Every structure is written in structure tokens, then in C-alpha cells.
Simulated assay, not measured.
Amino acid sequence: MSVLVEFSMFPTDKGESVSRYVSRIIKMIDQTGIPYRLTPMGTVFEVNSIEEALEIINSAYKQLEPDCNRVYSVVKFDIRKGRTGRLEQKIKSVEEKLGKKVKK
């Protein structure tokens, strides 16, 4: 099974720039060894079960909990049985289709 998760999480009580808080979460995800992609608006990662996905989300919150009084988060799941490696495959599929139609 493949569970793709796209999420953003950040404190709302720390001013305009929250990158130092977001970097805590990214460091934690990086240390897990799971595949992920940081984007300007959030992070996408892939795990093998919904339980693993929820553990990562919970761990992300725990990075902010000690010194953040208010945390905002949006989480999306794409769960598919019988597949793995979709973090790479979904992008590759679109790029292949674009390559057939776009002149370079």
C-alpha cells in the first residue's frame, strides 16, 4: 500500500516568518528516512500505512508543541492499495505525457 500525504503545519503565534519552526519538522522527517518533497506551500511524503502517516503528523506537531501556543495544519491523504513508489511515479507519468506533447 502507498499512503501519499501532503501537509503543511506551522505556528500562527510566531510572526510572519515561520521557517525556523517548519525546519524542525523537515529535519524530523528527514531523519526518519522516508521519501519526501518539500514544496513552497507544504511537504509531501510517502509511507506504507495510514498508521505510519499519522505517526509522522503527530511527530511533526510535537516539534512545535513545546513553544508554540497555536498551530495550523492542513493534511491530505491519497491511499492506494497494491502500489508503492508513487511519490516519484506520479510525477514521472505526467512528465512523460508532457514530453510527448511539448516541443523543446
Rank of each mutant, 00 (worst) to 15 (best):
G42H: 02
S2A: 08
K92S: 13
P40V: 09
Y21C: 00
F10T: 10
N48K: 15
L64K: 04
K97P: 05
A60E: 02
E16D: 14
M9Y: 01
R70T: 06
L54W: 07
S2Y: 02
S73Q: 07
P40H: 08
K101N: 13
V47Y: 06
I79R: 06
K103E: 14
K100E: 08
I50N: 13
V18F: 02
G33F: 07
S59V: 06
L98W: 11
M28D: 09
R70K: 14
I50H: 14
E96N: 13
V94M: 15
S59I: 06
F77P: 08
G85V: 03
V5L: 04
G99I: 06
V18Y: 01
V5Y: 02
K100C: 03
P40R: 13
E88S: 06
P35T: 05
M1R: 04
L64N: 00
M41Q: 08
I50D: 12
E65Y: 15
S93Y: 12
I50T: 15
R86W: 07
I26V: 15
T12R: 08
F45N: 00
R86A: 06
Q89R: 10
I34T: 11
V94N: 11
I26P: 01
K27I: 11
I91P: 00
Q63S: 09
Q63I: 08
N58I: 12
R86T: 01
T12S: 07
D13V: 13
F45G: 03
P40M: 06
M28W: 07
R37K: 15
R20I: 09
Y61G: 05
E95T: 10
V5M: 00
E16C: 12
T39I: 06
M41H: 00
K100L: 06
I56R: 02
T12G: 07
I26L: 14
R80S: 04
L98D: 13
S49W: 10
Y21L: 02
D67G: 02
T12P: 01
E95F: 12
S73M: 13
R20H: 14
R37C: 13
T32G: 01
S93T: 15
T32M: 03
V102M: 08
F77T: 11
K81R: 12
